[in-house]
Amino acid sequence: MKCKVCKAEAVVGLPSHNTAFCAVCYDKFFMKQVSEGIRKKKLLEADDRVLVALSGGKDSLGLMYALAELGYDVTGLHIDLGISDSSRKARAVVEDFCKDRGYALKVVELEKEGVPMPLIKKHINRPICSVCGKFKRHYFNKVALEDGYTALATGHNLDDEVARLFANTLRWDQAYLSDQGPVLPAENGFAKKVKPLYRVSEFESANFSFLKGIPYHHLPCPYSKGASFTGHKMIWRNQEIRSPGSKRAFYGGFLERGQPAFAAIHEKKKDYEVKPCTKCNCPTSVGVCGVCRVREQLADSLMASNE
């Protein structure tokens, strides 16, 4: 297979784009996907201070590298979930990556915050992925606002966004469908959130990180087995094989025609107000925020079990 641009031996074939690239031309293709995505949806300004959420996986580390290459002022933020071996490995990958490349890094340790995920899993009877996501979003936003960052970037790729859109559509969740997209503006105590990899697939992201020599963490989270999100990705994987380009069309069409319609409907129905949490001051629409409620449940459970 030859590179469609320069006719050298290809290293990546992309059926969704009906093309193939050598390593040099693939780098240009990928960086253009990211920069065009940022430009078209106005994700970032040139002077934004960007906090990049780094899990240690291919997407977040590749995103950090790409944004730095594009000239953005980036700092990494890693949340150490406290899941023994898994979290130690992920954190080491992130710390080594940032040290090697000269990127600034902040780390929040959930163990020190009193909420390591193994403790939450043991005491809170809710899906652990949901609670973990809640804590991660909480600390991403808190650090971004408290330390003066103007944007929070996450490594969600096209497959992540399609799986999430599919899940929201299966539930016809108007609230989530009204604001799903690659950018959420800063408002009501929330930092601006952006997903600059929304145009690239998981496969494209993996190829990019590999070709850039980024030694990413590729072991799955030990708690994620059986997550519905993975099942949705497999449905779309099969659809994409039958009809290359389906994911891009589904998500692109939603952003263009679906999301604005849901936003208009939801705006009329909105019957809540976002205010600071009465305990931690983080924004919430229900008085005490979800993170503080989990903390209360955990404290009650620990007291009951005398731990």
Partner: peptide, 8 residues
């Protein structure tokens, strides 16, 4: 052979 689907 490195599978690419991330699960969390």
């Amino acid at each position: 052979l490195r599978k690419v689907i991330s699960v969390g």
